[in-house]
């Protein structure tokens, strides 16, 4: 059933990683990505991998879940690897046949690039696995707050995002209902080629759109009735608050980046 789809792939839990403020996790993810792209030497890479491994262990997210999240990207990883393998020129020739030559440097770059992409995805997966979509939205709104000064509608964007999240299950339920109704009238959603299937979706999409617009209109009226007048003067019941663990986590993140830069300078 469509209803069983879980959203945002959030795995609820009560570990240290789950309890961190969403802002901390967002900043840590950025630091982690920066460190990942700064690391060009073995020691740097090892440090980044260590950081991710410890985070995963602390979050008690199963490695299997992270690996299954990586699966859709396997082709991109492979292509990147193969291209780097063939196109990197170096000094230590390994194999040479016809017009293709593979160098030792190519093998090295291929492995590093593949690893880099996988680590990048694994890190962001850990963020969405341990932070509910709503917390993420709140965190983003709070972090982007300074942009309000240059007239970026931060509050409105965050509100749109959280309303979208709120209505996804409602609209999925409705899609289910319309599908059943159309099936009862003889509609066929399963058979036929790509174009036939796309055509079959039309009688599903039109009522769904009409109803979505009606819902949007009613919701806007209801929100106005509840004194909604934009972000100005609005307070929040649940305040985000940075605890000591957040500052410690950020300090660890900064240390990670500093060490990776140091290793790069030293060229170890």
């Amino acid at each position: 059933m469509l209803k069983d789809i879980t959203l945002g792939q959030y795995y609820p839990g009560d570990t240290l990683v789950h309890r961190l403020d969403p802002r901390t996790k967002l900043i840590l993810t950025l630091i982690y990505i920066a460190a990942l792209f700064t690391a060009i030497v073995y020691a740097g890479y090892a440090l980044v991998v260590l950081f991710l491994a410890v985070s995963i262990l602390l979050s008690r997210i199963r490695l299997r879940n992270i690996l299954s999240g990586l699966k859709p990207l396997i082709i991109i990883v492979l292509i990147t690897g193969i291209l780097n393998l063939f196109y990197t020129k170096g000094e230590h020739l390994l194999v040479h046949f016809w017009r293709i030559s593979i160098y030792w440097e190519g093998v090295e770059t291929a492995i590093f690039m593949a690893l880099r992409i996988m680590l990048l995805i694994a890190g962001t997966l850990l963020l969405t696995y341990t932070t509910s979509p709503l917390q993420l939205t709140d965190g983003l709104e709070s972090l982007l707050n300074p942009l309000k000064k240059i007239r970026v509608p931060v509050h409105e964007l965050a509100m749109m995002m959280s309303i979208a999240l709120r209505f996804i299950p409602t609209l999925i339920e409705e899609t289910d209902k319309i599908m059943s109704a159309q099936r009862a009238r003889g509609a066929d959603f399963e058979t036929g080629g790509l174009i036939a299937k796309a055509k079959a979706m039309l009688p599903l999409l039109i009522p769904l759109f009409v109803s979505a617009f009606r819902r949007a209109d009613e919701l806007a009226t209801a929100m106005e009735s509840r004194c909604y007048h934009g972000g100005e003067g609005r307070t929040r019941m649940k305040q985000l608050s940075m605890a000591r663990r957040d500052w410690i986590a950020l300090a660890v993140g900064v240390l990670l980046l500093a060490l990776v830069i140091l290793f790069r300078r030293l060229g170890i």
Partner: peptide, 25 residues
């Protein structure tokens, strides 16, 4: 009822009105 509930969690939705009024958390 579906088209007047704003938030993903019951208590967050109830808080929506007072939040708009700028009441202390």
């Amino acid at each position: 009822p579906d088209n007047q509930i704003v938030a993903n969690v019951v208590e967050d939705d109830v808080a929506f009105g007072p939040e708009n009024l700028g009441i202390e958390p």
